[in-house]
């Protein structure tokens, strides 16, 4: 464990807490893509199959349980408790374009050809693109509530922090995880446009608005 990874994980944790706070304080899931949230739940469930047979650490175990539980809870909130506040007509990204290629890539690239390892690869590829329905929705509406942008910024920061973590691990542990690194770089790159607007507008106290 190094500080990049620790702060990355804490940023991931913070993003979920901000999302829950957004839903609670506005009593609405407006502006949040149900599809992206469903993809994240899929990512965590398929990645953490090892929860049942592989013990890494109490930290690792607790985080995994939290990510699975919170992502399912968010789906429950969106699907049932705040259902009327979700507008499916703007959440129109075709998730099969993400699920299909992720499955194909997982069959082609994995560390061992076993069910948990292929699912693990699938989750890595899927996580890389799971934010796309959310970003697509943002693009369509052209604006976002400030708290929603904080959620996305924390999520993007988590991904960005994993990159120095891999560089650090390469030099200190001689550890390289080519699947996670490749997918992670793609995933972080997807946030660049968002980060540009976040830094130049939201952090300057303006509303998040995309040029028409």
């Amino acid at each position: 464990m190094n500080l990049f990874r620790l702060f990355g994980d804490l940023s991931h944790l913070a993003s979920i807490i901000i999302l829950l706070q957004k839903i609670r304080s506005t009593r609405s899931c407006r502006g949040i893509s149900f599809k992206t949230q469903a993809l994240y739940a899929t990512v965590f469930i398929t990645r953490y199959l090892d929860l049942f047979y592989d013990w890494v650490s109490l930290y690792n175990f607790t985080m995994k349980v939290f990510f699975i539980a919170s992502s399912c809870y968010i789906l429950y909130l969106m699907r049932y408790k705040y259902r009327p506040t979700h507008d499916p007509s703007i959440d129109t990204f075709r998730v099969e374009y993400l699920l299909g290629p992720s499955a194909v890539l997982a069959l082609l690239f994995h560390y061992r050809f076993t069910v948990p390892e292929v699912f693990w690869s699938f989750s890595i590829f899927l996580e890389a693109v799971a934010i796309l329905p959310q970003l697509f929705m943002l693009q369509r509406t052209g604006e976002a509530e400030t708290i929603t942008t904080h959620y996305l910024a924390a999520l993007g920061a988590y991904r960005a922090l994993y990159i120095p973590n891999w560089i650090y691990r390469y030099f200190t542990e001689d550890m390289v995880d080519p699947i996670a690194v490749t997918a992670g770089i793609v995933q972080t790159a997807l946030y660049l446009d968002f980060f540009y607007v976040y830094f130049t507008k939201v952090l300057q106290g303006q509303k998040f608005e995309l040029p028409a």
Binding site: V56, F67, Y111, R112, E117, Y162, I179
Partner: peptide, 10 residues
Amino acid sequence: GSGTVPHDEL
């Protein structure tokens, strides 16, 4: 996993 990259990251 034996001989492969350990999945110790989240």
